[in-house]
Design a binder for these strands. Structure first.
Lengths: 182, 182
DNA sequence: GTCTATATGCCGATAGAC
DNA sequence: GTCTATCGGCATATAGAC
């Protein structure tokens, strides 16, 4: 499943063959089909792997007391993936975008759920900060992440991530509990 | 070329077959190959079509005197595509993201150029407004557009576009010529 | 220039030996 | 449970009639 998530991120779900994943996992092709009946199931496993990864990160951040600090750490984490983001885009965003272009299977809904997971967690932090417009702020923050990933990827420039993360960090630090001067 | 751009936007470049485009354009398959030697050339034509569309829009907006007004109209235009964005994402962003996952052909670079086109035009407007940080502001604005498109698409919710466009509109109206209180 | 028929190659999926 | 060989389908691309 790790190999599937990695290769699908790098090549996209459509262009990734079972043979690619099998090779990355050091097993022969037929073996893959023993555990996953179809390719769609394998892509679904890659999505689950993304969800698992985020839940792990969220659990770690939740150990911090201050919700604002949690968001700052989240944003800082994006910076750590700038090279991969500039090369392959956001794993969740690019996969969701690709799967949304085909109706079959309902895999698109599953990919959307991972983004929903992130969105809900971010909203909970803004809510804990006392912001009544937490949902909108969450869309803005996560949207900024998706946007900078698309641009960094399209222009092959990791520094776009650096600049945008810096801006978001300043924005988060200045955010007041009441939505007055937003 | 129009049919190619439309179908590629809806289905993605990878899943779109020559037959799909031929059907959408009401011509038989073999005919397509008379004008485009390979599928990559056809995808390239779809990219050119996107660039042409944007240049047309930019020329129209350039007739306005106030650069801030130009940006406001641009953002308002995004709202007009919210249904399509929620269903298929931003045409340029999704295509660039898909093509960036394969090295061959250099089509990814061409797709990046279309985004660069938009980015440069937006930067020119901020520059005309007297902002020394025009380049950063352009990345933020275009990034916000790409981000809201990804989210609206992944969650299948056009209203995300509505809310984010409203926020960007307010932001643009409050932006001062000098970067003091940004 | 327009269109049909077909060759070629690749990938998902399976059969079946071990 | 592991692995190899192969089938069947589909999409790009071409050959060639009109």
């Amino acid at each position: 499943m790790e190999a599937a998530a990695r290769v699908v991120h790098e090549q996209g779900a459509g262009r990734t063959t079972i043979a690619d994943i099998a090779r990355a996992a050091n097993v022969p092709v037929g073996n893959v089909y023993y555990y996953f009946k179809t390719k769609d199931e394998l892509v679904g496993a890659a999505i689950s792997e993304q969800a698992r990864g985020f839940r792990e990160l969220a659990a770690e951040l939740d150990r911090l007391d201050d919700p604002r600090e949690r968001l700052l750490r989240l944003v800082d984490g994006w910076l750590g993936q700038k090279e991969r983001a500039a090369r392959y885009g956001c794993p969740t965003g690019t996969l969701a975008a690709e799967l949304d272009k085909r109706d079959e299977g309902g895999l698109d809904v599953e990919a959307g759920r991972v983004i929903r997971l992130l969105l809900d967690w971010v909203e909970a932090q803004f809510d804990a900060m006392g912001r009544p417009d937490a949902a909108d702020l969450a869309v803005t923050l996560v949207g900024a992440y998706q946007g900078m990933s698309v641009l960094a990827n399209a222009l092959r420039d990791p520094e776009i991530m650096t600049r945008e993360v810096r801006r978001l960090t300043a924005w988060l630090k200045e955010l007041e509990p009441s939505p007055g001067s937003a």
